[in-house]
Every structure is written in structure tokens, then in C-alpha cells.
Design a protein around this nucleic acid. Sequence first.
DNA 1: GTATCATTCAACCGTATGGTTGAACAAGCA
DNA 2: TGCTTGTTCAACCATACGGTTGAATGATAC
Lengths: 98, 98
Amino acid sequence: MFGSLSDPTRRDILKRLSRRSSSVGEIARHYDISFAGIAKHVDVLSRAGLVTKTRQGKEQIVEIVPEALANANGYLETYRNLWERRLDRLDAYLKKIK
Amino acid sequence: MFGSLSDPTRRDILKRLSRRSSSVGEIARHYDISFAGIAKHVDVLSRAGLVTKTRQGKEQIVEIVPEALANANGYLETYRNLWERRLDRLDAYLKKIK
DNA sequence: GTATCATTCAACCGTATGGTTGAACAAGCA
DNA sequence: TGCTTGTTCAACCATACGGTTGAATGATAC
């Protein structure tokens, strides 16, 4: 999941998809990379659960999955909170002994 | 930054550091990987700004940087929010034409 | 000074990853 | 039916990455 976010092209695709869903070909048009290359990127995002693909005629429509982003968010928040709680405890301790 | 989060060992190191800071060697003791291997991981986290290293005698103390996690969080939230706003607009539109 | 412990650096190895091309598969349209 | 467009698949190439080992550097203790 973080692995799929680690590539700048994929992050840019996500950014684009956060504005509007589009077909794989439509996405590919905006990049210098080959069509197959973009299809691979979309596949990575799809296997990470960050986007979904649904057939619509010839085209495959790609949509972002906001819940997946929320999950990643939650993950980061867990560690941040743990740490900040630690800092708070330290702070409280320092105040106490002062 | 996401690249550095993409490795499970590095995520585990972060988790460990969210509980308590420790030296590189102390971290390495918990893994099957060689010392140099762990030092490399810590270096990746450090270059991503997720942790800081400060010398303390012979040892190098590694600390998590909660603001960095907050940044990643903010990044994800931006796209999620964009998308959810889009959904809201769609929702409003559907209600309007109904 | 030397010995020792913690860390860094450099070279190396195997595999994963981003990229390519070309062929094959679907789906619509003449 | 064939032709065109959109997508997938397979093989391949170069480079990045996780890992190793061994030597070099830093910092303390003797």
C-alpha cells in the first residue's frame, strides 16, 4: 500500500483521479510513458486497493477509493499519536518534578 | 517519504521508535538482519525526515519525528478530501435534479 | 598509546521494479 | 464479416533496493 504510493507517477495518477475518474487510456495520454507502462501503474494502485477498475464498454474506468486513503491515514496517525502521548507523559513528568 | 514507509522492516522500526527512542545497535538487536542492514534502514528513514539521529557518546540515538508523519497524513488527506468533496457535489447534484 | 564497542562506508549479490516492445484479446462500428 | 480502438499479457532490459561481508572511522575505557 505504501509501496504503491512510493512512485511519483502513481501519486500523480491518484491526484488526477481525485479530481475525476477516467479510463486507463485517458490517464496515459497525460504522460510520456507508454500505454502499457501506465496500465501497469494502474494495476499496482488497483492491487493496493487504492483504485477500482470497472468496464464501461471498451474502456476501463478507474476510480479512486477514498476509504483506502483513510486507512493509510489511520495507520500514520496511530504512530504519531503514540509518540505524542509519550511526549505528553514526559511533559507531565517534567512539570511534576519541577 | 512513502518509499521509506514501503518496507515492513522500516515500518516496524518506526513502530518501535514510537514507543521509545533507541540507538542503532539497540534497534538492530531485535532483527535477524545484519547491523549494517539495519543501519541502512535507519539511514533511509533519516533521509526521509521520519527520524533524526543524534550522537550520544559512542551511540547514535534515533528518534521519530512526529511532524513528518503529520505531513504524510496531510498529504493523504488532501486527496481524500478532494475526492469526497467531489462525491458531495455529485450528491448535491443528484438531489437537485431529482 | 591500545583495546573495544558502536557506527559508517564500500563493494558486491540477487531480486524487485519501472520501463519498453510486440502480440493477443475485447468491444464497438463499417 | 472485417477494421479500429482500448486494454491486457509476456518477454525482455536497466536500474534501484534489501541484504550481505569486511574494512575504516569515532568515541570511550584502560
